[in-house]
Design a protein around this nucleic acid. Structure first.
Length: 680
DNA sequence: TTAGGGTTAG
């Protein structure tokens, strides 16, 4: 019992509810209504019976007992006190029974107690009870304080009942900064984020000064740099730019809009920050694929004495994922153990192992996870599919369905990716045709893209083209590029020209399209057309992105670019490469100069082919790592056919695994074969 | 005494 509630805090209760025999008698009928057996009302009921009922029965029956046996006479104060006690104990059922009693007898508690009850309703998702509290505090002319109405508005927001929240907000006789901020936060988190910005303007017009709570909420509603700049100016004007909540929200929103330099400026102005501000800036860089900077900031954070929490580690893992830093990722895993039950962190760990090509570690992590959600399952399915284990991906999808986890848009995309990369045309078509019926998911542009890939790879180019024309939405450059790639494989010149035309309409500077088209012409000996494509590229100043490969050795990342001889060990690497090629040629390796044509910027000779960046990176792995250690490479462009053959033969000759991650998928080379089954 | 910031899959 909370002593302070023994004092009547609302003097008007005396006038509304007089504690006399008449008023005490009234509850008796209520108690009977609640089902008390009539014999309980006999005056000679024993104390032990009372104890039993106090333990088993509701507040109302206990209060009735107390009154009947004359041990205690419940006054309005006592009833309010009991109600408060139930509210603070979060005993919702008893509190609601007491509330019902109070409602019938026009008794009101204080705002703080109702706020506690509302918190309890929110925590339990008890909408009906929450509405009863709302009705009670507005009944019989009672005028709740602004504080209490704010709490009710917040309750509707938490129940995702924005219309009810807005209606109550509109009825408020006066609104303070909390009232406005509650609604602004609600709209910022909703699909009506523009409304949050409109409310900020209305609030200022009403003469209510926004505070740090308001700004940290409204920032999330900013769409684009224009809104953001205006809100940022407003923050500076009211002198709130140094608040850590506002600062982290600013960093976060600038990062979300890709304005990392602006985010960094906000961060660098900080004199005393907290862990969340550090997490905001690290997360910002990690999410914008700048893993290097994210890791640098993480090092700085540690030098300032901050300890990483689950959010920090999640971003650090994401940085490792984008850079394919398996060894560093493994070190982070040691710290993840501290937060073993954190689902989001475990999902990030799982993704790191998948994207770093270590499926064994990924599978162990997945199997150890106590809690799995749709992201965990999707990550593992996509991980299997991208690493060339399509059958395992489909088996896991079946297990997911058995587990009862509902697949979503991305899960189905992963399943279709598995089908397209394993040539499982019938399975892919089945999932595509039945996804709406089986899972309630409408096929989106990406699903169509997977189907075009599936049909195109299988040589069903006309069917792929037909599907593009059947799409509900406009096909984008990615879909046309997929078709163009398939036309290259199956040498369909007419369709290739049509697809290339569509891509260049949508993305006129796409170097990849010019190169693909040029290769298709070259493979058919159409040299005039090859020259025309190259001329267009030259005239348009369009340059191919240079091929680059990265390898992690002793926590250092080494980058290799075709023709770049700046690496300090380049002589050793070149010498090793020449030895290896000589030995491979003895095994029957013949450089496939068809692929020289892909490299329009480089020398068109066998030597340029032999110095493709992944070959250099593999050689550096060979001279730097222990003999049996897997060599893991990440590269920015798709692997060419010659490097693919080279890696397969080398893996067999050296009896070691080589893993190459390209922008689309992974190649695990082992014993003369690749996990992609030469189908990529 | 009500309102606020950072983390996961294509």
């Amino acid at each position: 019992m909370c002593g302070r509630f023994w004092n009547i805090q609302f003097p008007f209760l005396h006038s509304r509810f007089k504690t006399n025999w008449y008023s005490i008698m009234k509850p008796i009928s209520i108690f009977n209504f609640h089902g008390m057996p009539s014999q309980i009302f006999e005056p000679l009921v024993s104390l032990s019976l009372l104890r039993i009922h106090l333990q088993r029965s509701s507040f109302c029956s206990a209060a009735a007992m107390e009154w009947r046996i004359g041990l205690n006479i419940p006054s309005a104060n006592q009833l309010i006190n009991a109600f408060s006690s139930y509210c603070y104990q979060r005993d919702l059922d008893k509190a609601m029974k007491a509330l019902d009693f109070m409602q019938k007898h026009r008794i009101w508690a204080d705002s703080v107690t109702y706020a506690e009850l509302i918190k309890c309703c929110i925590a339990r998702g008890a909408i009906i009870q929450g509405k009863q509290v709302h009705q009670h505090v507005f009944s019989n002319g009672y005028e709740p304080k602004t504080f209490l109405i704010n709490t009710l508005v917040n309750m509707y927001v938490k129940f995702n009942m924005l219309d009810e929240a807005q209606a109550l907000f509109d009825q408020m006789p006066e609104r303070n900064v909390v009232s406005w901020t509650t609604m602004i936060a609600a709209y910022s988190n909703s699909e009506f984020s523009q409304k949050a910005l409109e409310m900020l303007i209305q609030m200022l017009r009403d003469g209510v000064r926004p505070n740090m709570y308001t700004y940290s909420s409204v920032l999330r509603a900013c769409k684009g740099s224009c809104n953001l700049a205006q809100v940022h100016c407003s923050i500076i004007k009211v002198g709130l730019e140094s608040d850590v909540f506002v600062r982290s929200a600013l960093i976060d929103i600038y990062s979300k809009w890709g304005e990392l330099q602006a985010a960094l400026c906000v961060f660098n102005e900080m004199v005393t920050g907290d862990l969340v501000v550090w997490n905001s800036i690290i997360g910002g860089f990690a999410q914008n694929s700048d893993g290097d900077e994210a890791l640098n900031l993480f090092k700085r954070m540690k030098s300032f004495g901050f300890c990483a929490d689950q959010s920090t580690l999640t971003s650090v893992l994401r940085a490792c994922t984008s850079l394919a830093l398996l060894e560093l990722g493994r070190q982070v895993h040691v710290h993840v153990i501290k937060f073993d039950q954190d689902l989001v962190l475990n999902n990030a760990l799982l993704d790191m192992y998948c994207k770093c090509g270590s499926l064994h570690d990924a599978n162990c992590t997945f199997n150890r996870m106590v809690e799995k959600d749709v992201i965990s399952w999707s990550t593992m399915i996509i991980g299997f599919a991208q690493n060339g284990y399509s059958r395992k991906a489909l088996e896991l999808f079946k297990a997911m369905r058995v587990s009862g986890t509902k697949p979503n848009y991305i899960t189905i995309l992963g399943v279709m990716f598995a089908c397209s990369h394993a040539g499982l045309v019938e399975d892919g078509q089945y999932y595509f045709r039945s996804m709406k019926k089986l899972f309630g998911i409408d096929p989106g542009r990406e699903h169509y893209g997977c189907m075009v890939d599936l049909l195109g790879r299988a040589g069903k180019l006309e069917e792929a083209m037909k599907l593009i024309h059947e799409m509900d939405c406009e096909p984008d450059a990615v879909i046309w590029r997929t078709l163009l790639g398939a036309c290259g494989v199956h040498r369909n010149m007419d369709l290739a020209e049509c697809a290339a035309k569509q891509i260049l309409k949508l993305d006129p500077d796409d170097a990849g399209t010019y190169i693909l088209l040029s290769n298709i012409y070259a493979n058919s000996q159409r040299w005039k057309d090859v020259a025309q494509v190259r001329g267009s590229m030259r005239d348009g100043g369009i340059k191919k992105e240079p091929g680059c490969s990265w390898i992690e050795i002793n926590k250092q990342i080494h980058a290799f670019i075709l023709g770049d001889k700046s690496h300090p060990q380049i002589d050793e690497i070149s010498s090793k490469l020449n030895q290896v090629i000589w030995r491979l040629k003895e095994m029957g390796y013949v450089p496939d100069t068809n692929f020289v044509l892909q490299d329009l910027e480089g020398e068109q000779s066998e030597s340029s082919l032999l110095y493709h960046s992944e070959k250099l990176a593999i050689m550096f792995g060979m001279v730097s790592l222990p003999k049996k250690k897997t060599i893991r490479i990440r590269k920015n462009l798709r692997i060419c056919g010659d490097c693919h053959v080279f890696a397969k033969l080398l893996a067999k000759m050296e009896n070691r695994c080589i893993v190459i991650r390209d922008p689309i998928r992974y190649h695990h080379f082992h014993d003369g074969a690749c996990s992609c089954g030469d189908y990529w």
